[in-house]
Amino acid sequence: MLDVRTCGSLAEAAGLLSADRQAHLIGGGTLVMRAVNEGRLTEGTLVRVTDPAFRQMNLGGPRIELGAGVTMAMVLARGELAFLHPAARSIGGPAVRTMASLGGNLFAGPPYGDFTVALLALDAQVVLQAGYGGGRAVALEDFLAARARGGQGLVAAIQFARPQSPGDFRFRKISRVRPKGIAVMTLAAHLPRAGGRIAQARIAYGAMAPTPIRARGVERALEGKPLDAVSLQAAAQAALEGCRPATDAIASEWYRREVLPVHLARLLAGDGR
């Protein structure tokens, strides 16, 4: 039967997780408790973290750090994070958002993981805490690539640079249910511009592969170009590079591939929605 351990410090929780393969961190619990309720998780230990650092937000400097226990509702409560509000608001209803944590979102399988898509387009780093040692920052992309293998221990925090201009950051989640539902796909883009030309674009997709992925082909197509018809055309051509979407109850693989270029074009063109 399941046990619960409450840890007052991140280090303690990280130690428990690394010592016991049957220990699972519980963040907001929106995914963990479902597994408990449905009888898929019946053995082992749930590890709860009450360390205030886990829910801390450092918003002052150019580099933002958010504790992994920060919830979507906490993001929505902070004006400094307005560029992330569309991503946070796209997740569940209000009662899910008061629980759903950023850390948990990093582990949510497709078609979940919408916030992670936004973080990926921000070139975020994940601060991992393995055992009692200190934290270690890992690029989010590498973290996601390794996710399937599991056993990464505790995510303590997430760090990223604040976009120079909030308008450079775009997020678009396509779902079939109004007012909201899970994703057909999710797209995020950070399009910093230098002298009218895109420099170091970051484009990320959700629900187009087993984890959120970077759209490297699109990033290359846009690099050093102005956002015009020519570069948009090139971006659309490269849109599907690296995609391995699934067929699920929301959409077929075929459909996802067909509509991705359309939604990408709208995202890059800045169509609000």
Partner: peptide
């Protein structure tokens, strides 16, 4: 919870 665990 006990019924679910035993079911497995």
């Amino acid at each position: 919870a006990a019924a679910l665990a035993a079911r497995n």
